[in-house]
């Protein structure tokens, strides 16, 4: 049950052109920055990326967009990225914008082995176009399908060699949901420990969901909106 790989390059070794990836994080918080850097280096392309945001121009998924590695983005909010907006408005990039709760719950459904969910988000809007609507107790709900992803790439605070993961603060966000949802799940962690060092009661993602884990060095953890008192 040892899931440890040596680094990001080894973890993403079999990610190929045209694959669908889930990438954890909310903005730049809890972002798997080591794997993204490795994907940028590898220049793998025609990717479909499921991630809440698209990074900023010079960090996160923005780096992959700049190299035109992304064919399609599935996100809820992309307001922080000028190059993204340019590629979208010019039609170079295919984009599916979906409600944030729908995005999270479609990941969750995949990890729970459920094919679909019902949500009221998007009823009466263009998000509902072409989707099945069911009425429960007088209210309309959209049928939304569980995601399918070749790889889920997440960032955790601590992980053990068996792939058990613990996240820190709001860097948790989409990470545990995506960790459950990948055909192959890669976790990069700040601290890699031996089995037994994490309290079983405090584990957020059980190792059964995680296929590869490695310790990332020198996290930049860039702050998007530094705001102080």
């Amino acid at each position: 049950m040892n899931k440890v790989v040596s680094n990001a390059d080894e973890a993403i070794r079999d990610i190929h052109d045209g694959m669908t990836l889930m990438l954890g994080g909310f903005g730049l918080c809890g972002l798997p920055e080591k794997c993204i850097a490795a994907l940028v280096k590898k220049k793998v392309k025609d990717l479909t990326c499921i991630s809440n945001n698209a990074g900023v121009d010079d960090f996160g998924i923005g780096l992959m967009l700049k190299q035109r590695q992304v064919k399609k983005m599935i996100s809820s909010y992309v307001g922080e990225n000028a190059e993204f907006e340019r590629q979208l408005l010019s039609g170079e990039l295919e984009v599916e914008l979906i409600p944030q709760g729908t995005l999270a719950t479609r990941c969750m459904a995949a990890g729970y082995g459920m094919p679909a969910i019902f949500t009221p988000a998007g009823i009466g809007t263009e998000v509902a176009i072409g989707k099945e609507i069911r009425n429960f107790n007088g209210k309309d709900y959209l049928l939304e399908l569980a995601f399918e992803a070749d790889f889920a790439i997440v960032k955790a605070w601590k992980g053990d060699t068996m792939g058990n993961l613990v996240y820190r603060s709001t860097a948790r966000n989409f990470n545990p949901l995506m960790a459950m949802a990948g055909k192959v799940t890669i976790a990069e962690v700040e601290e890699l420990v031996e089995p037994g060092e994490l309290d079983p009661d405090h584990i957020h993602t059980p190792g059964i969901y995680v296929h590869r884990v490695f310790k990332g060095e020198n996290y930049e953890k860039r702050i998007e909106q530094r705001t102080v008192r």
């Binding site: 909310f26 918080c29 809890g30 922080e80 709760g101 999270a104 949901l177 860039r222 702050i223 530094r226």
Partner: peptide, 30 residues
């Protein structure tokens, strides 16, 4: 005291309070 792991939905650095609770995005919309 800014903590890159602790932000609000506007991506601003924030603090937590006694009694704060953290959860994933699915529970948040749940």
């Amino acid at each position: 005291d800014e903590d890159p792991d602790t932000i609000n939905a506007g991506k601003q650095t924030i603090t937590m309070l006694p009694g704060s609770a953290i959860f994933d995005s699915a529970m948040s919309f749940g």
